[in-house]
Amino acid sequence: MPINYYIFLSVALFCIGVTGVLTRRNAIIIFMCVELMLNSVNLLLVAFSKMHHLALIGKHADAGTNAQIFVFFIMVVAAAEVSVGLAIIVMMYRNTHSVDVNFLNRLKH
């Protein structure tokens, strides 16, 4: 399958994620959209990794593996993020009885 399809899919996922972050006010959905963006990047990384691997298979044994390692990094970070982020959301809910991010506008002060 040509790499283009992966790129289009990944861009589409990323854009959905961005739109979600920008338009939704629910912190959990925003959070999920952020995950979506991260995963779209993961997808891309994996796709490119495969592509390079196929192209350079005779010359380098481990061609294209770097990208897959990055994917793992991202997944680890995402997991950490989930744990911290969710904790923040829980705290936020306790304080404001809402997960609407527009309540959190103290930055302007």
């Binding site: 972050v21 920008l22 006010r25 991010v101 527009n102 959190l104 506008n105 930055l107 302007k108 002060h109």
Partner: peptide
């Protein structure tokens, strides 16, 4: 500087 994270 509205304070809305979304805006930023």
């Amino acid at each position: 500087q509205s304070g809305q994270v979304g805006g930023y």
